[in-house]
Design a protein around this nucleic acid. Structure first.
Lengths: 221, 221
DNA sequence: TGATTTATTTTGACTAATCAAAATAGCCGC
DNA sequence: GCGGCTATTTTGATTAGTCAAAATAAATCA
């Protein structure tokens, strides 16, 4: 069985190279896991021996099909647990990430399936991140962001890509959550600022371009 | 923070000396944790350094108040998780023990409280084991068993003390679950056998004395 | 091309938890 | 009161995961 450390390495590799093609540089992996680079190197060599990753020395790492399979299962657990915590236990969506970080390594596949059924087989978690299917399909799609979408066109928020509690709380405070329809009323590139109008009367929210880039949207139908 | 190994040592010490008075012999602790005695000795000395237990060399170990506090919290998590798995996720009551063994170390106190509220602050888990209160009170009571209760008197099953999947499945098969009213129709000490009659017509169930001793009962009111 | 910077890997050391096997303490019988 | 049994403790070794710091390779820049 993969230890929870192994699961974490694989999960972060998946998140750092969602396509599965690209080689993840050792430094990026080490940073994501908050370990020193030497530790990541050592661990990656062990993972390669177990057949979970392919290691190209000095170039980077990438998941093998087997590693990807395990990583997708962990990610599925993480996102279903988050969904459960928000929808059933009514927890603060800014807190559930850290909880799920622990629980993803402790729940069995059977509990996972029952949780999935209880929640009605959701497609995305409360932050809008897609939940991998049981078969390991991850319907990831390229979305526009509030920083890139058409001006003055109504769009629907689908996903918040920054999972930090601070950012999530900020987003919640201004009602910028998946499902909400908004419109970018103005974008001032030199100043790095933009104004987001929630449908209706409410005053426009002012956002930095950096923050806006973390909020994915699709055209509102 | 206590590692999950530490939590397990403390939990088992609590279960082996529920009163908190008695010294638990090192061998008993090692057996409960399925480690060799030397390992338990080493670990217990570390636990004593951290203030969780008192170690009387060659005599035994017992929890300090602080150790007991931690142990009760772990036990509360274990039993509430079991209750959740059976009542909400509808899992087989014979399987939930092993699941809870993992989850008890992964859930936060906040999740614990919300789970408790969701379940309506249950007093006992699905096996009838008492759930420690948030304040660390464990309403444990001395019960009779099917092996010791009065003959031909109607009693209600309150608790199954053997958590092994085999025994639980056996109990379930014969409808011997907490809440069920039964009557010991006959007890044959030399043969080590007894006959249990479920209220009504069903044929009597034949049980060994050993098995009967694992089923706690109280007088049916 | 040669020197410098940067990323990665190696080396040596540490911690937590474990086992196997040897040493020891306590008790029990005679 | 001495020998022997049993439970416990010690000792030495192992594994997983980590860090600090030295060594190396690659990339960059002059």
């Amino acid at each position: 069985m993969a230890t929870s450390t192994v699961e974490n390495y694989l999960k972060h590799l998946l998140l750092l190279a969602e396509d599965g093609e690209a080689l993840v540089p050792m430094g990026a992996l080490a940073a994501a896991l908050e370990v020193v680079p030497g530790t990541a190197t050592t661990m990656v060599k062990a993972l390669a021996d177990s057949g979970f990753v392919q290691h190209r020395p000095r170039l980077g790492v990438r998941l093998t099909p087997e590693g990807r399979r395990v990583a997708l299962n962990v990610l599925r657990k993480h996102r279903l647990v988050e969904t459960f915590l928000v929808h059933v236990l009514k927890m603060d969506w800014a807190k559930v990430h850290d909880e799920a970080e622990q629980l993803e390594h402790a729940i069995s596949d059977e509990v996972l399936d029952r949780l999935d059924a209880l929640l009605g087989h959701p497609q995305t978690d409360p932050h809008g991140d897609p939940i991998p299917s049981r078969q390991g399909k991850l319907h990831s799609q390229v979305y526009a962001t509030l920083a890139t979408c058409t001006l003055d066109r109504s769009v629907r928020i689908v996903r918040i890509t920054d999972q930090s509690a601070e950012f999530l709380r900020f987003a919640e405070q201004h009602g910028l959550q998946p499902g909400t329809a908004v419109r970018v009323a103005d974008r001032n590139l030199p100043a790095g600022l933009l104004a987001v109008q929630k449908s209706g009367k409410a005053p426009a929210v002012s956002l930095s371009l950096v923050a806006a880039g973390k909020i994915l949207v699709e055209p509102a139908r």
